[in-house]
Design a protein around this nucleic acid. Sequence first.
DNA 1: GGAGTCATATCGAATAATTCGAAAGGATCG
DNA 2: CGATCCTTTCGAATTATTCGATATGACTCC
Lengths: 303, 303
Amino acid sequence: MTPKISLEQWRALVTVVEAGGYAQAAEALHKTQSSVSYLVGKLESLLELKVFEIEGRKARLTANGQVLYRRAKALLEESERLESAAGTLAAGWEPELRLAVEIVFPTWMLLNAFARFSEQAPQTRLQLYETVLGGTDEALLQHRVHLAINGHIPQGFTGTTLLSMPALAVASPQHPLHQLGRELGYDDLRQHRQIVIRDTAQQSPRDSGGWMRAEQRWTVSNKATAITAVCRGLGFAWYPQDMIRAELLSGALKPLPIREGADRQVPLFLIVTDGDAAGPGTQLMAQILREEVSEQCRRAGHG
Amino acid sequence: MTPKISLEQWRALVTVVEAGGYAQAAEALHKTQSSVSYLVGKLESLLELKVFEIEGRKARLTANGQVLYRRAKALLEESERLESAAGTLAAGWEPELRLAVEIVFPTWMLLNAFARFSEQAPQTRLQLYETVLGGTDEALLQHRVHLAINGHIPQGFTGTTLLSMPALAVASPQHPLHQLGRELGYDDLRQHRQIVIRDTAQQSPRDSGGWMRAEQRWTVSNKATAITAVCRGLGFAWYPQDMIRAELLSGALKPLPIREGADRQVPLFLIVTDGDAAGPGTQLMAQILREEVSEQCRRAGHG
DNA sequence: GGAGTCATATCGAATAATTCGAAAGGATCG
DNA sequence: CGATCCTTTCGAATTATTCGATATGACTCC
């Protein structure tokens, strides 16, 4: 539990190895030879282990020393990373970045952004709240998150448009709505069960669950369950195209032929809770998200 | 490159967190409260970062502090593991254990043994030389390895029997030798190409590559290639049953109906290069290998 | 509100650890 | 052999850490 060997001592060991001798290490460490000799000697006596043996007038690592060298180097590197992380925290970076993201936002884009973010800020912990409808508002209003991606901009916040996603009404090919063999009106939909994802707001449930009332409605608590339910023919649903790409390709889901055009645009906004006063991590993540989305849109446009 | 923060300082931080305060940490560290205050204060000033804030009369971690705490704890644990590894080296454990293992020894048994070994001696590096025929002898004679598993015991070494493995003459079911529809003599085999694995000895190639001369012989340099070659019908070969278990089950290989009985026993011995003078790592590994083999034989006997 | 308790901060003196410079001892090279 | 290079050792100087005492602030109980 109590370290016997200090980082300075390990550093002496490592530097002697890498500089090729006590004298060279002394220069590299800006110390005198005798200090280096003292540090290594103390390390050896505390460990009761010879690390170097003097062969001619050069210091050579023993076999034991090689094992210690590798691991000591790793220890020093870890110490360095820790101090560097402390440095970014001292520079005002948030130790933790919390995001509320409307569940229809494509997960893979989000993960791309996370990957890019953590390259630049590996010490920042990320907390993602996947929310539905009112849940995002609530998180914003209570300042529980630094960033949000939401379908609208609540009162008192400013946001920028990220993208707008086409949403489709879909059902399993076996579903009765697909058997009618004609274009459908909203009256047709009203006769059937709609599957929606549960509003994650804890306080004020806003009932904008669908753009219309279905005769029956099932509410489930996560994305995967909702998609499975629709695939099994248990109802129809409005989903963003991207969210059900795989199911559309495999034929497990099929867009319903709605009379006025089956697709709607679902807009998504990026909202920075603290605006320009946000910390560097928040601003970096916001920038990365905007870049990621615009890159992907450009790519989709070309392809 | 130069650590500003010492392990003692990180330890103070971690202990204050875990003990629940400066005063309690002082007790845990066998120091006075003012020393702890000094260490943490110095850490904070070097990092230009507040780690604790005094809330009432308790010290509470800041958000930044939480990040540092987790990572500092990891750093200390790494330091502890390093010192403990040094301790086992000081107790005479080999920093590196080298084994030469005849390629017919079942790889999965070897890996089981390695796994068990590294539970007990995680700091020992393992070097495995997979050898064929003379290669093991050579490694032993030159004292390049601590342990060897070999088909015979060379002059001047002592070894114990590990196990004896049934070896079969096999070929692809499409192979002409399988089309004869009768028991085979050695004369029949001599008419066909034999696939052998290359002798890994660098110095003195012993030509005991097969127990008999085949008309043609192909020598390949590794186990996988040899098996593939035989599966493709390119020749026949003598292999230990265990090595080709999967191929026998799938029907890719089929034992040849040799007149005198198609199977031979290939004995394998465990040889400890330095005998009783071997280090603790060598002795542990030898013991584990013997246990592993006897357990597996017992299991096979019951099954 | 005040006395008592608990917890951290600060200060100067005491102590311990590290560093330095100088000198000594080997090993290698020309 | 002398010159050079490198490590070790030693005592003195320096620096860092620890200690004990005391100050300060917050909560508790009466």
